[in-house]
């Protein structure tokens, strides 16, 4: 397997006195689809925000693309940001811009494309997430699932090397969700994009994940790590078994 693009070493994270996770250690390799699992409120979004430099670790260090994640070092942080794309759990679309403008923003800001080429590319991005024709809509005029897909299109805008997606399929219908899985796998295979995805969708995990980690709020640590199929079939941990063997209809 290729060199790690993200390393997490001894990461303790929390807010004030409240420790969310203690002493996390894992690597994410180039070209992986790395899935983070865990009950709601266990710290998945917090972990993601640490990996993109929005929060500072209480202890430990994180490297991304071979560079220390240190938001105070402006130059290095910008070099990291140029290689990553992030989709936040709530979508975080700019409410004053229409969908097209949201997706166009990083393109006009960080690429040499101009004029009609930007418009065309924006439409191709929206087409890939199934939102073609909605470029003139404001975020408030869309459903939650549509906002989520638009946010994914914006995160994809520059085809970054590493994409962080926080619950991309929550709120999506099964067909959009499957389409999203296909898109993730495509980008992963054709462009070698590394994905770090938070998701609960069991079918999606089994389709896309090359490796998963499972966080546990009670022990504030990782309780399982590895190939999702192997974990499903062989894990001895009761939580992990429960997660992978839940009855259909209880997903979500």
């Amino acid at each position: 397997m290729s060199a790690p693009v993200i390393t997490v070493r001894g990461l303790t994270m929390g807010f004030g006195d409240h420790v969310v996770m203690r002493d996390l250690n894992f690597d994410i390799h180039a070209g992986e689809v790395f899935v983070i699992l865990g009950g709601s409120g266990c710290g998945k979004s917090t972990l993601l925000k640490h990996m993109v430099g929005l929060y500072k670790p209480m202890a430990g260090r994180i490297t991304v693309a071979g560079m220390d994640m240190d938001p105070d070092d402006d130059g290095a942080y910008r070099r990291i940001l140029a290689r990553i794309g992030v989709m936040f759990q709530g979508g975080a679309l700019f409410s004053s811009m229409n969908l097209g403008e949201n997706v166009a923003l990083p393109i006009t800001e960080y690429s040499g494309l101009r004029g009609r080429a930007v418009d065309d590319l924006v439409r191709l991005k929206l087409r890939q997430v199934g939102l073609e024709g909605f470029e003139h809509h404001l975020p408030e005029e869309l459903s939650g699932g549509m906002r989520k897909r638009a946010a994914i299109a914006r995160a994809l805008a520059l085809n970054p090397e590493i994409l962080f997606l926080d619950e991309p399929s929550a709120g999506l219908d099964p067909i959009s969700s499957a389409g999203l899985d296909a898109l993730i796998l495509r980008l992963n295979r054709t462009l070698g994009t590394t994905f770090v995805v938070v998701t609960h969708e069991l079918s999606s995990i089994l389709t896309i994940a090359s490796r998963v980690v499972m966080l546990d709020a009670a022990s504030k640590s990782i309780i399982a790590e590895g190939d999702p199929h192997e974990l499903r079939d062989r894990s001895a941990h009761p939580f992990v078994r429960q997660f992978f063997n839940r009855q259909p209809g209880m997903e979500g």
Binding site: N98, A104, V118, D119, D120, R123, L124, R127, R186, T190
Partner: peptide
């Protein structure tokens, strides 16, 4: 394969996306 995936045979509508 990419052009098929993007369904480029029916290219997206032209026109500006800015309001």
């Amino acid at each position: 394969e990419l052009l098929d995936f993007l369904r480029l045979d029916s290219p997206p509508e032209p026109g500006p996306i800015r309001r």
